[in-house]
């Protein structure tokens, strides 16, 4: 019971401090799940994003559900998802019903301009950490640069990036085996 409550509280916090899409959530997930609680490794966290990216539903929820299930089965999955969406529900209902001019408020706009800069910095910070352990060797660099080029030049959908790199990894793996 207590662990379920902790999972709920943890994802409530993550939901509350996620500003933006699912990728803006990654620095928080890494700080809480990898560094502080050691629920998953950095590698597993990236794998969750690969899976969350190509399964139906928005990434933030997919990742939350996955971690909840890993920790405490179906009940855990329900608790993390509930924790993740509850801050949104409360805040949006408040804004929609009483704080209708919330987004037009000058100070709110200033604060959010600051927060967006921080989100960009947090993502940069996480990339430095993750790149060191996950981009090793020529093939990794090739996949990273290739994916980035496809994204920037052709605005290819993220789902395709994951699928294409997965097929590439499978082929490389098969060729490697044949050689042995």
């Amino acid at each position: 019971m207590r662990e379920l409550w902790n999972l709920f509280a943890l994802f409530f916090k993550i939901g509350l401090f996620t500003f933006g899409g699912g990728y803006a959530m990654l620095p928080l997930l890494k700080a809480e799940l990898v560094n502080k609680r050691r629920f998953v490794s950095e590698q597993e966290l990236l794998d969750l994003y690969s899976i969350g990216q190509c399964t139906p539903g928005i990434i933030a929820i997919n990742v939350a559900t996955f971690i909840g299930y890993q920790q405490k089965g179906v009940c855990g999955a329900v608790m993390t998802t509930l924790g993740m969406v509850l801050p949104s529900l409360i805040i949006i209902v408040l804004i929609a019903s009483v704080l209708q001019n919330f987004a037009d408020n000058r100070y709110v706009a200033y604060a959010f301009a600051g927060i967006r800069i921080c989100v960009a910095a947090l993502i940069a910070d996480v990339i430095f950490d993750l790149a060191r352990k996950n981009i090793k060797g020529f093939l990794n660099v090739f996949v990273f640069m290739g994916a980035l080029a496809l994204l920037i030049m052709f605005n290819l959908s993220a789902v395709w990036i994951v699928i294409v790199s997965g097929i590439f990894a499978l082929l490389v793996n098969e060729i490697g085996r044949r050689k042995k």
Binding site: G21, Y23, A24, L26, Q43, L46, D47, Y49, S50, Q53, A120, I123, A124, V126, I127, L130, A131, N134, I135, L139, N140, V141, V143, F144, M145, G146, A147, L148, L151, I152, A158, I161, V162, V164, S165, G166, F168, A169, L170, V172, N173
Partner: peptide, 14 residues
């Protein structure tokens, strides 16, 4: 093999 591509996705989002 997908991990470097996911990092590219994160960088692109950033």
């Amino acid at each position: 093999g997908i991990r470097p591509a996911v990092l590219a996705l994160i960088l692109f989002a950033g």
